[in-house]
Measured scan of single mutants.
Amino acid sequence: VGDQVLEIVPSNEEQIKNLLQLEAQEHLQLDFWKSPTTPGETAHVRVPFVNVQAVKVFLESQGIAYSIMIED
Results as ranks from 00 to 15, higher is better:
S61P: 00
Q21I: 13
P10I: 06
A24F: 09
E23C: 07
E13V: 10
V5P: 02
T42H: 08
W33T: 13
E26M: 11
P10V: 09
V45N: 01
P48D: 04
P39W: 04
E7D: 04
A43N: 04
D31L: 07
S35E: 09
E23A: 15
F49H: 12
L20T: 06
G40R: 03
A54M: 11
L6V: 03
S11L: 13
Q4M: 12
H44K: 08
K34E: 07
V45C: 05
K56Q: 06
T38L: 10
L30C: 05
W33F: 13
V57S: 14
F32M: 04
P10S: 03
I8V: 08
V1A: 14
F58L: 07
P39N: 03
T38P: 01
E60W: 04
Q15T: 02
L30A: 04
E23N: 13
N51A: 11
Q21D: 14
G40W: 08
V47P: 01
Y66I: 01
I16G: 01
L6D: 00
T38R: 12
K17G: 08
Q15D: 08
L22A: 03
N12W: 02
G40K: 04
L28Q: 03
K56P: 00
I16Q: 02
I16Y: 05
E13R: 06
V57Q: 12
I64L: 04
E7Y: 09
V52N: 04
E13Y: 11
T42Q: 06
D3R: 05
K56H: 06
I70V: 14
H44R: 12
A24C: 06
H44E: 09
H27R: 07
L30V: 11
S61M: 13
T37W: 05
S61Q: 15
I8E: 00
K34F: 05
N12P: 01
E60K: 05
E41A: 10
V47N: 01
V47E: 00
S67R: 11
E23K: 14
Q53R: 06
H44D: 02
A54R: 07
E7R: 09
P48A: 05
V1L: 12
V45L: 13
L59W: 01
V9T: 08
E26Y: 09
D3E: 07
Q21R: 12
H44F: 14
K17L: 14
V50D: 10
E60C: 04
D3C: 07
V47L: 03
D3P: 07
P10H: 01
K34S: 07
W33P: 05
D72W: 15
G40C: 06
A65Y: 12
A65T: 13
P48G: 04
A65M: 11
P10G: 03
Q62M: 14
T37D: 05
V55A: 02
L22S: 02
I68D: 04
V45F: 03
E60R: 05
V52Q: 05
Q21T: 11
I68T: 07
I16M: 09
L6Q: 01
K17V: 11
I70S: 10
A43H: 07
S67G: 06
Q25T: 11
V52F: 13
D31E: 09
S61N: 11
V1P: 14
P10T: 04
I16E: 01
A43P: 00
F32H: 02
L19F: 02
G63M: 05
Q29E: 10
E71I: 13
M69I: 08
E13F: 11
K17Y: 13
D3S: 15
S61I: 10
T38I: 12
I70A: 11
S35T: 14
P48Y: 03
D72V: 15
V5H: 09
A43Q: 04
S67T: 12
E14G: 06
L30I: 11
E14K: 08
R46A: 07
V57R: 11
K56C: 07
K34N: 08
E13G: 08
Q21K: 13
H27W: 15
G40Y: 09
Q4H: 09
I68F: 06
V55H: 00
A43Y: 14
D72Y: 15
A65K: 13
Q25A: 12
E41M: 10
S35R: 15
L59I: 01
I8K: 00
A65R: 12
P39C: 04
S67K: 13
E71F: 15
F49A: 13
S11P: 02
V57H: 12
H27F: 08
E14I: 08
D31P: 02
F58H: 04
E13L: 14
Q15A: 05
E41S: 08
I70F: 12
S35D: 05
T38M: 12
Q21A: 13
I70P: 10
T37P: 04
S35P: 12
Q29M: 15
L28F: 10
H27M: 06
V1K: 15
A43R: 02
F49K: 12
Q29D: 09
R46F: 10
R46C: 06
V57A: 14
P48N: 05
V45A: 04
D72C: 10
V9K: 15
W33H: 10
T42G: 05
E7F: 07
L6S: 00
P39D: 03
I70T: 15
K34H: 08
D31Q: 09
Q15Y: 01
L22H: 03
T42P: 14
G40T: 04
I70R: 08
G2A: 10
F58S: 02
V47H: 00
H44Q: 14
I16F: 09
V45W: 02
F58M: 05
I68Y: 05
S35L: 15
D31Y: 08
N12K: 03
G2Q: 13
I68L: 08
L20K: 12
V5C: 08
E7I: 15
A24K: 14
V47D: 00
F32V: 04
M69D: 03
V55Y: 02
N12D: 13
E41H: 06
T37E: 06
V50Q: 14
D31K: 13
A24V: 09
L28S: 03
G40D: 04
D3Q: 08
T37Y: 06
Y66K: 00
Q62H: 15
F32E: 02
P48Q: 05
F58Q: 04
S11D: 10
A54H: 09
R46M: 07
E41T: 07
E71H: 12
V1C: 08
A54L: 10
